[in-house]
Design a protein around this nucleic acid. Structure first.
Lengths: 133, 133
DNA sequence: CATATTCCCTATTGATTTAGTAGGATTTAA
DNA sequence: TTAAATCCTACTAAATCAATAGGGAATATG
């Protein structure tokens, strides 16, 4: 797994919304300014987060976004998978994004990378937005 | 860290050389055929491995490559860093390839990724070519 | 009702990275 | 002398990444 800026920005936006849950809907521009994210770039990420049911939105004046789940119901793993794909270091050892890769037939080698996959996956599944809030 | 095919091929080549240490120098074409690697692509990788002192070479007929270190002196970490850079999931938590990234100011978040970096780094430092031979 | 504000959605772009290919130069064993 | 091998750099096609652009649709407010 390699974090892209997409994932990083998405996590920053979610943390911001979690910290300001009582504020109702919050606009992209507000989040973008607070977290130093290019607004039109953030817009794409928010849309993806909404389609994945992490967020709710409202249009028009007083509109914006808010969390659709409690922060402790949003594991980092889900957010990162949405933007960056596999948590595993190579796709031949990924459960969710399996593809064949050159090392596949080397069993001792794949074992090493599966161990890494398991640690990363477990860590990011059990850490939620609430934990980093 | 995301493994590229470069790293994967390099590891396959090193494992092959480790398994055939008594053979003397082995040519790129032999390795490429045995491990299903495009030969001219492998050539670049071998050159990089040689420059990084993992391999020795001999030119001309009967030439080729051999390990310049014992397999147990070649940690996977070194090979992967050579081709793919940081082992950490994002460079703001990397010790060897530090760069600033968006999440940097969120301490709880960076802690999570440092834990991952530590696990991956430790795992790949202590696993050597001898272990996967 | 008009308008400003906000989300919705897709296309485009420029830079970088990735995965190779090409080909000539050099060395050496037979 | 020649065939086999490494050495070295340039090139390329495709994909990915990080944004930017701009028009459409909904809605609160005056």
């Amino acid at each position: 797994m390699k974090l892209t800026t997409r994932s990083e920005y998405a996590l920053l936006a979610l943390v911001y919304l979690a910290r300001n849950q009582e504020e109702g809907f919050i606009s992209i521009d507000t989040i973008a300014t607070a977290q130093s994210i290019p607004p039109k770039f953030l817009e794409q990420l928010m849309l993806a987060l909404k389609r994945a049911h992490f967020l709710r939105s409202a249009k028009g004046q007083k509109g914006g976004y808010q969390l659709a789940k409690q922060p402790n119901q949003i594991p980092l793993a889900d957010v990162i998978r949405l933007f960056d794909g596999a948590l595993a270091p190579t796709e031949s050892v990924s459960e969710n994004f399996y593809e064949t890769t050159p090392i596949e037939k080397e069993k001792k080698l794949t074992k090493v990378f599966k161990d890494i996959r398991d640690y990363v996956s477990n860590k990011l599944e059990k850490t939620t937005i609430a934990d980093i809030q």
